[in-house]
Nucleic acid binder design. Sequence first.
DNA 1: CGCTATCCGAAGTCGCGACTCCGTATACTC
DNA 2: GAGTATACGGAGTCGCGACTTCGGATAGCG
Lengths: 197, 197
Amino acid sequence: MGGRRPQRADARTNRERILNVAEEVFGKGGQSASTEEVARLANVGIATVFRHFPTKAALLEAVLVQRFDRLREQAETLFHAPDPGAAFFDFFSHLVADAAGKIAIAEALFEAGGDHDGDAAQASDGLRRAVGALLQHAQRVGAVRDDVELPEVYALLVATSRASARAHLEEEVRDRMLTIIFDGLAPLRNARAQLKT
Amino acid sequence: MGGRRPQRADARTNRERILNVAEEVFGKGGQSASTEEVARLANVGIATVFRHFPTKAALLEAVLVQRFDRLREQAETLFHAPDPGAAFFDFFSHLVADAAGKIAIAEALFEAGGDHDGDAAQASDGLRRAVGALLQHAQRVGAVRDDVELPEVYALLVATSRASARAHLEEEVRDRMLTIIFDGLAPLRNARAQLKT
DNA sequence: CGCTATCCGAAGTCGCGACTCCGTATACTC
DNA sequence: GAGTATACGGAGTCGCGACTTCGGATAGCG
């Protein structure tokens, strides 16, 4: 008994292609993009999609887990960067730029902050933790104000990601937006506090 | 001929009730909330909704126009406030706080920035212009850096509004997020260098 | 090269939500 | 208070998209 044959080669490649196509399709059209379009662009029947991913939600979740994990790994790579300040700001910029045109990802990143459980929420949490570590390192070297905490920083990260996810936001405007936020995160604000009195 | 009777009283009140209920329903559930729910909560048949607003999109647009116009009026009220700096920041905060739980409005505010035309886009544009005026006034009195422009400020406004539109964002975190942005918008970035007088 | 478990695609089913039809009810006119 | 245009509600229709079924193909083992 138990003589289970291994997965067939074509099944494996199909699953992978579906996942990649789904990332693009959901990225461009959001969660409301149709499963049929994913199948068509992957040169695959609709049934094949559902065979590999029992529901549309499962497919979306698989896409998200893949993406979140990838981002988390990138963040972890920067844990031991020589300049933690640059590491933090670079990762912030990179994530926001990366979100351009990735509607579903940005949305999910956003909602996963909440109550939903499941693999995607778990992966999202891992990313959040990694960002938290980057933030702490940056604060330790004085590149970021000590009095800011992860929740508001992450909220800003998510908000700007979502903002650049949809069209109509030129790269230049996005950068100027980030400049403002980065200025707000920088320390030495108290120069003004003394003035204000 | 031409003896068109005026609109009946019950029709007028129904239209108004539908519009108000729709604002709440779309606010809470986003654009994907069903027309049938609007009808039910308004104590009205589905047909009545469609009689007043030919399509769901038209209903949504009516809601948005109402909301955008109201916000624009509030902004215009502040044009001649004694303290243009406070006026700008207060309006920013107010709009973001107001967006809490108003999913559809924040989303639409966002997308209306783009190519869509129609009444909603026009109303959205009016709001944007009003914010631009507040910004200029604030800059004129030195409450906001001179080198920021409307596009990035508006993008930040929209992004934070969207962020607080959905659940999972406590009021405190929202305020801390705004503090960071406001600090980034404040002038005197080089004050610590020259300790401005 | 034949056998079979595995995998595939096309053509369905099914439910949901936007929108319509029509007989009934109600506000307004005289 | 009778007549009529206007408005109403509920029971439809219709299309779309998630998911299933099943006969046919194909990989991989011997």
